[in-house]
Write a protein that binds this DNA or RNA. Structure first.
Length: 509
RNA sequence: GGCCCUGUAGCUCAAUUGGCAGAGCAGUUGACUCUUAAUCAAUUGGUUGUAGGUUCAAGUCCUACCAGGGUCACCA
């Protein structure tokens, strides 16, 4: 239940006063001929062509939220803001109906309200393009004032903000207020849209078909993660929120599409951190007749395109580091990488117990009884990953933790899989996809054995997926990437929460 | 889940280490026909996250809880 505070009570009284003066606080209709940016552009263009006097004949009707008020007796300045930017309204009692002007003078139309203003363009003595207002209309009364932030525009055009709205909890819980007062935040989500648009365009141009597959799945799979479980009442059936799209997308290659992709939400019932949110945006694609080397090439080019589209260059400044997305990216097998950063060749320890002992002897504390591949992965995550600042492919992962990848040619314990890392973060995962149904069934069974102890992460055997594969699946390369993390890199945001409009928070009490 | 830090006015922060809860901004009232962080004068505003406890006295110390951040654990 809303308990208006003092400031809000003042504004509620103003609504009554507005209604007494026959002014609707929330009228039905609005009109607009120009955005604020378009009004300024049109005005300065006319000045250039026909001179200052002619330009002042330009009539505009603009709309926006009042972000600055300066009442100087019989003369007032208001700045309104729409999505395109800010524009000054110049209100003079000489040019307005007295009762209209009084709405501003009496502060019934004030900070944070939405208004519509009509008038002619002009420059103030200070040279600022403004609207000499002949009439204006209240469009929406703000009952709660936004956090107070004042801005000063420097001579070089940079904007300094005085005061701030910085409490992260409030910013996330009331993202609307955050967006309304923090322009930088709005910019992040404009760039986010540009990233996703570019990924989509890149794949479309490469001949991929965009598809949508079920979010509610009867059998989850394609990754090792704890799912959210829900229930369909009429079908009396438990359903899982997907943890990946992988198995549904690869079925489509059986169906005859050569290349498919999906951008959508995955859900994982796990912890949150600066790079984990319970629901996150994933891009997966699968393309027939290429292997993981082909996927590496697509990866490099796609991310370079995304960086260029958002920031105009493949050089990315991220948290004090300079990252270069331009292809080709360095490639290193996981064995080479571990050798290089840990000075240990894990192939000297071919079974889990001996590798576990070796890792303990390095001084690492690890949970006992983990599969061999997970131990290798521990070495990677602990000692290699933090050092992988520039975009890097790490290739040829252990087979026992990669149930959907084809074996390498040179031995029986590695598979054609890569992950790529940027700024010390795992960004994505890709394979030469396994398309032998007999091998796939074996892998499912091996996984079931491997994870029996910790069955939270067990990948259930998907009979229908095997049935699809038995009809014949073309050889193909597949790819998955956390889109939010890419957005973090390209917008220089430290936390995944800053690239999600509504990050997951505990329930408000 | 463990450990550490934080929570004071609408926003951003103080409070001399246990001794009368304060400032700037915004709000209210007034002045001002070219301001732009407008200015000038006056002024309102608090259950110090919640609930207990110690004390003559608690924003400050203790306990529990709530929320957020960090970190570890977890996370193909």
């Amino acid at each position: 239940m809303w308990q208006p505070n003092r400031l809000e009570q003042e504004r509620l009284i103003k609504v009554e006063q507005l209604e007494m003066r026959q002014v609707a606080p929330y009228p039905r209709r609005a009109e607009r001929t120009h955005t604020t940016a378009a009004a300024i552009t049109a005005f300065t263009a006319l000045e250039g062509q026909n001179g200052a006097e002619a330009a002042e004949g330009l009539e505009v009707t603009v709309c926006g939220r009042i972000r600055r008020v300066n009442i100087k007796g019989k003369l007032s300045f208001l700045h309104i803001e729409d999505e395109s930017g800010r524009l000054q309204l110049f209100l003079r009692i000489d040019n307005l109906d007295d009762s209209r002007y009084a709405l501003v003078k009496d502060k019934l139309v004030e900070m944070d309200d939405f208004v519509q203003a009509s008038g002619t363009m002009m420059r103030t003595k200070a040279g600022e393009p403004s609207v000499l207002v002949h009439d204006f209309k209240l469009l929406s009364k703000a009952l709660s004032p936004l956090p107070v932030i004042k801005q000063a525009t420097q001579e070089d055009g940079t904007v300094i903000e005085y005061g701030e709205f910085s409490d992260v909890e409030q910013r996330y819980r009331q993202r609307y207020a955050d967006l309304a007062v923090n322009y930088d935040v709005r910019e992040v989500f404009i760039k986010r849209a540009a990233v996703i648009r570019t990924l989509r365009r890149f794949l479309d141009d490469e001949g991929f078909l965009e598809v949508e597959t079920p979010i509610l799945q009867p059998v989850y799979g394609g990754a090792a993660a704890r799912p959210f479980i829900t229930h369909h009442n009429h079908l009396h059936q438990d359903l899982f929120l997907r943890i990946s799209f992988e198995l549904y997308l690869k079925r489509l290659l059986v169906g005859g599409y050569d290349a498919v992709y999906e951008i959508g939400r995955d859900f994982r019932n796990e912890g949150v951190s600066y790079k984990h949110n319970t629901e996150f945006t994933m891009l997966e694609f699968y393309k027939a007749y290429i292997d993981y080397r082909g996927v590496m090439s697509l990866t490099e080019r796609m991310l370079a395109a995304a960086a260029a589209a958002v920031n105009g260059t493949t050089v990315v400044e991220f948290q004090g580091q300079t990252l270069n997305f331009a292809p080709p990216w360095p490639r290193m097998t996981i064995r080479e990488a571990v050798k290089h950063f840990c000075e240990i060749d894990y192939m000297d320890y071919p079974d889990a117990p001996s590798l576990e002992t070796a890792i303990r002897n390095m001084g690492d504390s690890i949970a006992p009884g983990q599969p061999w591949g997970k131990l290798v992965e521990h070495l990677l995550g602990e000692h290699v990953e933090p050092n992988l600042i520039q975009p890097t492919f790490i290739t040829d992962y252990p087979r026992d933790i990669s149930p959907f990848a084809k074996r390498v040619e040179y031995d029986d314990v590695h598979v054609e899989r890569f992950e790529f890392y940027i700024a010390g973060m795992e960004m994505g995962n890709a394979f030469t996809e396994l398309n032998d149904p007999r091998d796939q069934e074996q892998r499912f069974l091996e996984m079931a054995k491997l994870y029996r102890a910790e069955d939270d992460d067990a990948t259930p055997l998907d009979e229908d997926y095997l049935r699809a594969m038995r009809y014949g699946m073309p050889p193909n390369g597949g790819f998955g990437m956390g889109v939010d993390r890419l957005v973090m890199l390209l917008t220089n945001q430290r936390s995944i929460r800053d690239v999600l409009l509504y990050p997951h928070l505990r329930e408000e009490k």
